[in-house]
Design a protein around this nucleic acid. Structure first.
Lengths: 191, 191
DNA sequence: CCCAAAACAGACAGATCGTTCTATCCTGGA
DNA sequence: TCCAGGATAGAACGATCTGTCTGTTTTGGG
């Protein structure tokens, strides 16, 4: 059994985070207990609490993964070298593809916020940070493309993406897709 | 049949439902236990289970109340005798006021759906029924006003209302309001 | 080879979950 | 007057929750 990889990030920890992310997203946070997470990850209780002081820390790590994924997608799109005008279109299509393929159970942040009413909680703060970053990122993209009112356009795109996530989950993406794409392109000044 | 038709709404039952609705909406469904509901309603456990066979039934009743409230608001608007064209504007303004005043913690149906991943569950079916009714109601209003494509307009208004609910909760209504109103009026063909 | 860190195994605590139960009171209608 | 049904009061059920604890085994680096 050649275990060659240097497990700096601790393979058990990664398995824990991956399975927990899947369970939290699919079944909701409060509905998933520590027992289920450790059983499905094939890890013992002691190992769990070695890596995460409490379940809350695991929840925050889960949102951190989601946040990192989206930032990575934006970074990749920007690194593609596409001109600013085309980048706006790429971003919108990327958001649509993401909803269609990876986020068919709604937005992880919106769903988490539904379960955490306290606006001062760490989870809600993570949600706020994510949304603030997302809005400013969109604003930067629109601004680079020379859109007349980048702030207003970004605000509209945030709204439309929220709607796409919720509508895709509850009504089906095929029903929401055309309205999202036309409205998003309009908000981005793509005619 | 014979049962005496008095059957008054049982004041305890109404208190139970009102208290639970408030708690479910504010703190989430899974986060609110039966203990808290009966304590806050000033009712005993036995009384609770006399009126609701299980907590699930209470959850469904809660969504039923929300559904009835919105249907009532629509019925009132339609009973106002306003001409179809003006009715569209009244409905949009009514939706905005509702988000601003009564639904500052998001949409009860969206939040409930976030906690119920099983699409076949009674809760999700209630959500589906509500959304289907809402869409067709909007379509009827738009149709009566002579809007070119009522189905597409209604679909867009549903999306925009989802976005308004989520955005109002997470970003603050004042931030969402202008984008919602202009987009909604556009979708309804109000220029 | 040795040792410390990490994972395994699992019992356990204390609380809360939804639900059932028995027993007693209060009230309104026949 | 009698009595059924609604409400009160509270014990108790088993299950599950997060989190702690005591050990034992595995593993990798020096």
């Amino acid at each position: 059994m050649a275990r060659t990889s240097i497990q700096r990030p601790s393979e058990a920890r990664e398995r824990l985070l991956a399975t927990a992310s899947d369970l939290f997203y699919r079944d909701g946070i409060h509905a998933v207990g520590v027992d289920r997470i450790i059983a499905e990850a094939g890890v013992t209780r002691a190992t769990f609490y070695r890596h995460f002081p409490s379940k809350e820390d695991l929840v925050e790590a889960y949102l951190g993964v989601e946040d990192a994924n989206i930032r990575g997608a934006f970074a990749a799109a920007e690194a593609s070298g596409a001109p600013p005008q085309a980048l706006v279109g790429l971003v919108i299509d990327g958001l649509a593809d993401d909803v269609a393929q990876h986020h068919t159970r709604g937005c992880p942040f919106i769903n988490a916020a539904a379960e955490y009413p306290d606006a001062d909680s760490a989870v809600r703060q993570a949600v706020d940070r994510h949304r603030t970053w997302f809005r400013s990122e969109l604003e930067a993209v629109l601004s680079a493309a020379g859109t007349p009112d980048p702030a207003a356009g970004a605000a509209q795109l945030v709204l439309l993406r929220d709607a796409a996530m919720v509508g895709g989950y509850l009504d089906g993406w095929e029903r929401v897709r055309p309205a999202f794409l036309s409205a998003a392109r309009g908000a981005a000044g793509l005619a």
